[in-house]
Design a protein around this nucleic acid. Structure first.
Lengths: 206, 206
DNA sequence: AAGAGTCCGGGACAACCGACCTGATGCACC
DNA sequence: GGTGCATCAGGTCGGTTGTCCCGGACTCTT
């Protein structure tokens, strides 16, 4: 067993926990299975983390960071706003289809946090970060393209976060990418229709 | 302990399990806590159900039935389509705000089913029922009011199911009913805008 | 009233879990 | 080349969980 500073060991254990939980689910993941996944003995676990709960805290913040990165990288300015929105959704969607277990894990972790007294703030922070990420993306997009919205940024951001969340869970449960794609097309139209400045919006709704 | 036929005992245990799980979460609910909640001895539990998994199956189908009933009762035809949609959402929303634990439970149960090999079909059935319920509501509404949609009923139904699901989870985590109401207003407009026949839609979008 | 079928109670068991403890081992520094 | 500290290994402990067993009690039929 190679020796390494505890900070790095913590990272290693966190990543191992994410792998184990992605594979087996939060409920069936034990401190032993995490230690085994990381290839270290059980005592190393408790040397690096005060408790299982402390590790879960680390897992939640880490995986929320993953999620935010994915969403931020999905959105890249294109020629028209509508295409930007569409391509962004598509990129995010491909990630969900490719890594369903990891996304399912985010829901499990949210509920773990909600049910554990004193950890509710982690769930809240997770969802606030989702909304904040979308708000930031909208602002950033508005800087590069220049447009006006018929609803406040905060409202649209929260809608996008919630709707994405719901549609993701829906896809994870039902599969059927084709049907989900049809729904997504409808949402594309809807979001594009929220742009007041008609310059980049194909449907000229006054 | 009053004697009763096992069918009724099963119902009683199922309802007790829902209460216990709503209060404590699925993970912390044990066969013992369920038996205690129902006021019966532990052996009665295993007399009525082959295993804990069998009970969970009963819980899932029961609570999904509850959910469908709630949604169906929320929608009642009003003077205009837009008002019907708005009032329907509002009624559903009030229920979520009044019974958050029960709604949170539905998410926990979905994930329980998804993670338990051989029980995935329960999660799928749950979400198919959600979509089917919305589709049925749309058809029923179309019979009484007469209108055309710019998207297929199936697509709209799945969108409504997914979006409601996401917004519900969002509200359960973040609270803040006011912000959620603003999002809902936006969705009202969106859904009302999907109606092609402008006769009952206040916003005259051609 | 007798017996079969149904329901209930207490107790026990094996498995598993998180947490902890005691030594041993490598590493850097004096 | 010790010395102190960070890191690791194996074993153990108390507690909990799902499941099962067996004896007794109730109820309905005949």
């Amino acid at each position: 067993m190679a020796r390494m500073p505890s900070a790095e060991r913590r990272r290693q254990l966190t990543e191992a926990a994410i792998r184990a939980m992605t594979r087996d689910g939060v409920a069936q993941t034990t401190t032993r299975s995490i230690a085994a996944e990381a290839g270290v003995s059980l005592s190393v676990f408790h040397y690096c983390f005060d408790s299982k709960e402390a590790l879960l805290e680390s897992v939640i913040t880490t995986i929320t960071g993953h999620y935010v990165t994915i969403v931020k990288e999905a959105i890249r300015p294109r020629t028209t706003l509508r295409e930007t929105v569409r391509a962004g959704f598509r990129a995010y969607w491909d990630h969900v289809a490719a890594h369903p277990g990891e996304h399912l894990l985010t829901y499990e972790l949210t509920q773990y946090a909600l049910r554990r007294p004193g950890l509710e703030h982690l769930a809240r922070r997770q969802y606030e970060l989702y909304t904040a990420t979308y708000a930031q993306l909208i602002e950033q997009l508005r800087d590069s393209v220049e447009f006006e919205l018929s609803v406040p940024v905060q409202v649209l951001a929260r809608y996008l976060a919630a709707m994405t969340d719901g549609l993701t869970l829906n896809l994870l449960v039902l599969g059927d990418d084709a049907a989900a794609a049809a729904v997504l097309d409808m949402i594309d139209d809807h979001v594009a229709g929220l742009v007041v400045d008609g310059a980049h919006s194909p449907a000229a709704v006054s």
